[in-house]
Nucleic acid binder design. Structure first.
Length: 603
DNA sequence: ATAGGGTTAG
């Protein structure tokens, strides 16, 4: 028996073909709105059946919309969409575009590219909607070669000036690691949107080009279209964290508070991390305590933050609290816990946590965890135990582990194990000049001058140069970068005079430069000259000149400071009555009244 | 004739 509905709607197909005006478009529209109303796959199947019953399925407009809805809805299915798509005799670019989008949504990126190939084979001309999605597929693969081809293709078809295409290109090149091409596209744009800036900033952030991030953000702020967006500001906060730019970080915090009605966990955690890593532990703690929703990551950030600032026992207390809250610690939280133990010299606790890690929380030990353990044992002089640990490790030991052991051997003057570590390092052929420096210092301390000479010679023969160390200092919301021996910066006016004055005063405090840390084959005077232009000293001189009396000085470094800079900074903090905070690769040094919070375990 | 680009924490 035929239903009322069918009698009412069913129109013979020939009517449509013979008389396109018999309200055919209207019926197509009705079908499409029926399709778009579907809330789940069940309803969608009914709608699909309806179009078949009504004879409307053979309208490619209707079928394309079935494909579109099924491909893009979260309840949809690409298999289903595909089976409909295959029944369309001459699919339009609209249908192809949605097949591509559907595959990209499901992260079947290669299939997305295949559909594009098919589109070209069928002679369907891509339009301005095709390229953004296609470029997203290239970006997420990532596939630079294909991306470039798509770029060229879109250009040939006249979409070189399309805003959406260009924004997708910035993203694609960024994800493929070709940041200069991202910039090239961006620079050529006549008109830009927030998405253009967002893509460019995110691209630089993902590559760790933090200084550039801030530069671009500044450029954005002076544009008319500028709008503070949460995602952009979080990247800016992250840049501030890495650069140690506390003042700019504070400003960005202000922008967030002004723009957003409330801050979510992600934003709050990034802010917390910024304060902690820029040296303001208390502000970070304050934010943490007031957070309504804390998750695994917020705890992880705070635990490693406390560890970095030398507050081991507090870090462990927080870890216990995390467990009480029913949160599962992950590998990063454990790195924080273990480094807290090592900074505080809590050997027994460290071993206990290391054992619990896998047993209780199923966290697989990574090289970082082993690194903490080697450091923990090495710091208290348990060098043999540390060496055994590396030997019996289940994963391939990397250079960081051997380097940590070598350092510990230098501190505790164990030549025997130190030589083993150095040999392993040279086998790994990392080409790190610092390793030779540490080994030669170890020999120097035990007065094995022939070995010192041999080590230095080996280093020279390999043509190794020490990683250029730099120090960052923020002044009036700008970050200045100092490299050792560098005189080329514009703001260097007065720095050398200041250095001279500082050294004069240091002499009265009994300071004499420790030229043994300079391993270049130059005379004593040249060594002293080089020592006095270490980047940290330049940065301190700059900060003392450009900030008011008594205000704290904050410095961020890429590598550890040398022992001469450490003692120098201690004395400067007392002579000039300044608190000086230096962040290196793994910890903070709070210099105050001639002492340092690291208890001189800086190596 | 329908639609689209960027996007966040250690």
């Amino acid at each position: 028996m035929t239903s009322v509905l069918q009698n009412h709607f069913l129109i013979p197909l020939e009517d449509f073909t013979q008389n396109p005006d018999c309200n055919f478009r209207g019926r197509e529209q009705e079908c499409v709105s029926l399709i778009k109303k579907c809330k789940n796959l069940e309803e969608f199947k009914q709608a699909h059946a309806q179009t078949l019953k009504l004879g409307m399925f053979w309208s490619s407009f209707v079928a394309s919309n079935l494909v579109a809805t099924c491909a893009l809805s979260n309840w949809g299915s690409m298999d289903y969409a595909c089976s409909i798509f295959r029944q369309i005799e001459e699919p339009s670019s609209f249908a192809f575009n949605h097949m591509i989008r559907g595959h990209v949504k499901d992260m079947n990126l290669e299939q997305a590219l295949q559909v594009f190939d098919e589109m070209l084979e069928c002679g369907v001309v891509p339009d301005n909607f095709t390229y953004p999605t296609l470029l997203k597929a290239c970006a997420n693969l990532p596939a630079l070669k294909e991306g470039k081809q798509v770029h060229g293709h879109s250009f040939k078809l006249g979409f070189g000036d399309d805003l959406f295409v260009q924004n997708s290109l910035i993203n694609m090149y960024g994800k493929c690691g070709e940041i200069s091409l991202s910039c090239a596209v961006f620079d050529k744009m006549v008109q830009r949107s927030v998405a253009s800036w967002s893509a460019l900033i995110a691209a630089h952030a993902s590559l760790g080009m933090w200084g550039k991030c801030l530069e671009i953000f500044r450029g954005m702020s002076s544009e008319e279209c500028w709008r503070a967006e949460e995602s952009i500001l979080v990247n800016v906060v992250s840049a501030c964290t890495h650069l140690g730019a506390l003042d700019l970080g504070r400003c960005t915090h202000g922008s967030l508070l002004r723009t957003m009605s409330g801050l979510n966990v992600v934003v709050e955690t990034s802010l917390m991390d910024m304060y902690v890593k820029c040296g303001s532990l208390n502000k970070g703690l304050f934010l943490f305590q007031r957070m309504i929703e804390k998750n695994q990551m917020s705890y992880g950030v705070m635990i490693s933050g406390l560890a970095m600032h030398g507050q081991g026992p507090e870090a462990l207390k927080l870890f216990d609290e995390m467990l009480e809250q029913g949160l599962k610690p992950d590998d990063v939280a454990y790195v924080g816990v273990l480094s807290a133990c090592s900074h505080a010299g809590l050997v027994e606790e460290g071993l206990k946590y290391f054992g619990r890690m896998k047993l209780e929380h199923g966290v697989i030990s990574t090289v970082q965890h082993y690194g903490c353990m080697v450091d923990l044992l090495g710091r208290v002089g348990k060098l043999k135990e540390a060496y055994e640990l590396i030997k019996n490790i289940s994963i391939e030991p990397n250079e960081v582990l051997w380097r940590t052991l070598l350092n510990a051997c230098r501190v505790h003057q164990n030549v025997e194990i130190g030589e083993v570590a150095a040999r392993e390092l040279s086998l790994l052929d990392s080409g790190n000049a610092g390793d030779y420096v540490v080994l030669s210092n170890l020999y120097a301390q035990s007065h094995s001058w022939r070995d010192v000479a041999k080590t230095r010679k080996e280093m020279m023969c390999k043509g190794l140069i020490q990683t250029p160390g730099f120090s960052l200092v923020e002044m009036k919301r700008k970050v200045y970068r100092f490299v050792s021996q560098d005189v080329s910066f514009p703001k260097c006016d007065g720095i050398y005079e200041m250095i001279h004055q500082m050294e004069w005063q240091l002499k009265f405090e009994g300071y004499s430069p420790d030229t043994s840390v300079v391993l270049h084959d130059v005379d004593e005077e040249e060594k002293r000259r080089r020592l006095s232009s270490h980047s940290q000293k330049l940065a301190i001189a700059f900060a003392l000149i450009h900030s008011s009396q008594g205000s704290p000085v904050r410095i961020v470094r890429n590598v550890r400071m040398c022992s001469d800079c450490h003692i120098y900074t201690k004395l400067i903090s007392s002579i000039y009555d300044r608190e000086i905070t230096v962040r290196d690769r793994n910890q903070f040094h709070h210099f105050k009244d001639g002492t340092c919070s690291c208890r001189d375990c800086y190596q």
